[in-house]
Amino acid sequence: MEEEKEIRLEYTLARDFIDEVYSIPGGEQIKKCIQCGTCSGSCPTAYLMDYSPRQVFAMVRAGMRKEVLESEAILYCCSCYMCQVRCPQNIKITDVFYALKRIAWNETDLKAPQARLYKMSPIFFDIVRKKGRNHEIELMTRFSLTAAPLEIFKQAPIGIKLFFKGRLPLGGKKIKDLKELQKMLDVCEEHEVLGGVV
């Protein structure tokens, strides 16, 4: 059977995408990718990905913005850093994947297909902003309710076990200088750069 291949014309490619990704600290190193595939071979979740990490890098450089941001590859990255420590070109691969997650997250029209995969981080984000620390029981409960309400019954026994072992305290601690911390986080918002530092 012949494989169907779509031909993309150059003018449909996002040529500034590569600059967006280069803007992360150390991101310009992507230019040096030699497409050796060590990253894909080292990745414990590559077999789940629609595009392997090596392909993602080729696509970033080609300007295939939409395909990259819609791909599940970036979401399956489990942040184990195996690719990063093995990369012969010293590309901070895991950091690049984080940057891609952030860009995808900020483009609301792109996050729909994998909505569930995006839900944990914003809840964590919100709790830490409000308390200064994470509160595990709140994180688990809110994530279950928003992302997978049907799975609550499956996950509940684990929460109950931890609770009775004294490992899920109900009251979350708030830090004293919370207002100062929130002000600090707001400073970042004023300097928002999607792929980059922020």
Partner: peptide
Amino acid sequence: EDWNCCGATAYMSVSQGRSFVLSAR
């Protein structure tokens, strides 16, 4: 005293700048 969350992997996925700021405090 009065330490705050480090940001963990979750913050890094939403805002790298803020995760640096959390740790930096």
